[in-house]
Design a protein around this nucleic acid. Structure first.
Length: 318
DNA sequence: AATGAAGGCAACCGCAGAAGG
DNA sequence: GCCTTCTGCGGTTGCCTTCAT
């Protein structure tokens, strides 16, 4: 064990690589192979540490590297593998030929993670977020809006003729917001009462799982994992690797959470569509509840049905 | 046109496991 | 079994570009 001393050496160049350095590294590796990364810089005439050379080669100079935007398929593969493997970027990269772990990691951090968060999913667990306080500002805003609408009802006489559509939308929104607030309040009550009773954190996840369940009809007392097992009776996917951070910081039900339970959508909608997601079905009222805002609904429960259960790669993790 | 903010990405840092002496 | 070295990995940082004001 122990740390590599190579980068502690002083006098070695850091920072962006020049075309000349790239050329030297490329030529050397093509001619001799990389061999020992530690000795490579000296042999190749580079004033860099071996680590830096290795990184440059694997992330940029390697001839089989694919450049350009990630395809829809790649995006979904990343999402799926991340739900199984967590931040195992190198493992994920093995299933995306031509993509490096660094590239995938960057893509995740800059695109997919944000999209999941915006949809209300926890990017670590791929489940709807259960940390109520994280959503508190939005809920306060919703409450203010509800009060405003209540004080100035959409159907009041001040409205102009021809505003019928707006009225209907506002009314539906109001109903929807009230449902959201009620659900949140119910969840808090449930959490508080179960916490008082000394129940496990799973109860919180279960409560929220019921709130956001794609079916919207789950028994709120049923454990999430059991419910998801029902949804996936023949599925033998491994449980999601939940980081210690997620466990400690968010108080999740933790390690026994099935990652697919709330992944209703086959793929994530573009960010621009998110604001519409809650409005697309406003007349649904309470039946919409949180499930529609999570992009859940009745879509396929297994976004990527065509692979993995029998994949030897997956069985390695079972 | 100038400036600040946000996004995207390449590269660095430090930890951990494997291998060899 | 212990220590050292090497390699790989994941998290983070900082720079550059693009966008908004």
């Amino acid at each position: 064990m122990g740390r590599s001393p190579c980068c502690d050496e002083s006098g070695l160049k850091k920072g962006p690589w020049t075309p000349e350095e790239d050329e030297k590294l490329l030529q050397y590796i093509q001619k001799n192979g990389h061999g020992s990364w530690r000795t490579l810089p000296r042999l190749a005439g580079l004033n860099r540490c071996g680590k830096s050379c290795r990184l440059r080669w694997t992330n940029y100079l390697r001839p089989d590297i694919k450049r350009g935007k990630f395809s829809q398929e790649e995006e979904q593969t990343i999402l799926h593998l991340h739900s199984i493997l967590g931040n195992k970027w190198s493992a994920i990269a093995t299933h995306l030929p031509g993509r490096t772990d660094n590239e995938i990691k960057n893509f995740w951090n800059t695109h997919l993670k944000k999209r999941l968060i915006q949809m209300g999913f926890d990017p670590m667990t791929h489940r709807p977020r259960t940390d109520f306080f994280a959503a508190l500002p939005q809920l306060i805003a919703l409450a203010a809006l509800r009060d405003q609408l209540a004080a100035d009802p959409p159907g009041s006489a001040q409205l102009q003729p021809g505003a019928g559509v707006d009225v209907a939308i506002q009314a539906a929104k109001l109903q929807y917001l009230q449902c959201l607030l009620q659900s949140a309040a119910t969840t808090i009550d449930g959490i508080a009462s179960t916490a008082a009773a000394g129940s496990t954190p799973d109860a919180e996840a279960a409560a929220f799982g019921a709130l956001c369940s794609p079916q919207g009809t789950q028994d709120s007392t049923a454990p999430v994992s059991a419910a998801s097992d029902q949804l996936l009776p023949s599925c033998t996917f491994p449980k999601a690797p939940v980081s210690s951070e997620a466990n400690q910081g968010l108080g999740y039900g933790g390690a026994d959470v099935d990652v697919f339970a709330c992944h209703g959508a086959a793929s994530l909608p573009p960010l621009a569509d998110l604001s519409d997601a809650a409005n697309n079905n406003p007349a649904d009222g309470c039946s919409a509840t949180a499930s529609s805002s999570f992009g859940g609904g009745t879509g396929s429960l297994l976004p990527w049905p065509e692979f993995f259960p029998d994949d030897p790669f997956i069985t390695d993790f079972l």
